[in-house]
Amino acid sequence: MRYPLLIFLLALFESCDYSNGKTPPHYSLPHGYRLEAMEKLLLSEDLEEVSGLAWHRDELLAIEDESSIIYRLDPETGKIRKKKKFEKNKDIEDLLVRGDTAWVLRSNGNLYRVVDFREKDSQTVIYPFPRREKRDLEAILANPNEPFIWLFCKVCEWDEDPSRSSFFRFHLETMQFDSLPAGKIERSQLSTLMPQQELEELKIQPSAAAIHPLTGEYFLLSSTGKWLMTLDGQMKPSSVHTLDPSLFKQPEGITFAPDGTLYISNEARDGRANILIFSYRP
């Protein structure tokens, strides 16, 4: 069942000690969403390490990073309706849906195309990532108006340090990757978007991504450092929001319902995995 938030979360006391002169972080969400208007779904043990979310038809889809299963969830209760095994167990990180095809990202950058994933006789095709250097990619998104899938590095050798995250393009017309990054999101782009103290400590290591169905904004989520970023269609950051770690314990998945309702999933860590729900009120 859903659990409405009865206490204004920003008033919660943190255990951090700010006597060293540092200013406590300001927790927020992008325009149209409010922390105090949150609801929560608790997930079953099957989804303790939930690592990705997507919306399809009237359901939430979820994956977890210890098995290659697409879970179909009731968006009102979080209960599992059906499961679909699409591959041997791999380190699975994010997913999206176009039509009746699910695209699933493995941490090494490989993409799984699961055709007719709702059907018993679905087919899985694997598209290997074109580079072999050490890499960890955990976020994908696709603009319905573009024939691409975007993949974001969390920790990739060629990025050299956590101040940047390169992103790649997979072409849906040719079913091929570009071998070089299409661009990078860099800490230097955020200098006017957040306090300098928070910026200096920010690691650009995204763990999930989604596109807002009404505004077209890209949303990029990070479990490392607990932040949520919005970007325009040219991958230019427009806002950065620090997330309360007492609420967003390990945010690894993000998606939207067609009406703009925001869903963010958290791995279990020291409790139960959950999905946090925020209604869109622009």
Rank of each mutant, 00 (worst) to 15 (best):
M1H: 08
F13W: 06
F13E: 15
F13L: 13
S15L: 14
S15F: 12
D17T: 00
S19A: 08
N20R: 11
N20V: 01
K22Y: 12
S28V: 01
P30Y: 04
H31R: 04
G32E: 14
Y33G: 04
R34L: 14
E36W: 11
E36P: 01
E39F: 08
E39I: 03
K40Y: 03
K40M: 13
L42N: 07
E45Q: 13
E45C: 05
E45R: 12
E48F: 08
E49D: 15
G52V: 00
G52C: 02
L53D: 00
W55A: 06
R57N: 13
R57W: 04
L61A: 07
E64T: 10
D65E: 15
D65M: 04
S68R: 08
I69F: 06
I70H: 11
I70M: 08
Y71K: 12
G78F: 07
K79A: 13
R81E: 06
F86Y: 13
F86K: 03
F86D: 05
E87D: 15
N89T: 09
I92T: 10
L95T: 06
L95C: 03
L95E: 06
V97T: 02
V97H: 03
R106C: 12
R106E: 15
S107N: 11
S107D: 12
N108C: 01
N110A: 07
N110D: 15
R113D: 10
V114D: 04
V114A: 09
D116F: 02
F117W: 09
E119I: 10
K120P: 07
Q123E: 15
Q123S: 12
T124H: 09
T124R: 07
T124S: 11
T124I: 09
I126W: 02
I126C: 07
R132N: 12
R132V: 02
R132S: 08
I140K: 00
A142N: 11
A142G: 15
N143S: 07
L151W: 00
F152L: 13
C153P: 14
K154F: 10
E157S: 14
D159N: 10
S163W: 00
S166W: 09
T174L: 09
T174Y: 01
Q176M: 08
Q176H: 11
F177D: 03
L180W: 04
K184D: 10
S188M: 02
S191Q: 13
L193A: 07
M194C: 01
Q196P: 00
E201V: 05
E201K: 15
K203R: 13
Q205H: 06
A208Q: 08
A210H: 11
P213T: 05
G216V: 05
L221C: 14
S223K: 13
T224I: 14
G225D: 13
G225W: 14
K226S: 08
W227L: 09
Q234T: 11
Q234N: 15
Q234L: 12
K236A: 05
L243H: 07
L243S: 03
L243G: 01
L247H: 06
L247G: 02
P251V: 13
E252Q: 02
E252D: 00
E252I: 03
I254Q: 02
A257W: 05
G260T: 09
T261V: 09
I264V: 13
N266G: 04
N266Q: 08
E267D: 09
R269C: 05
A273Q: 07
L276P: 08
L276T: 10
Y280L: 06
Y280Q: 06
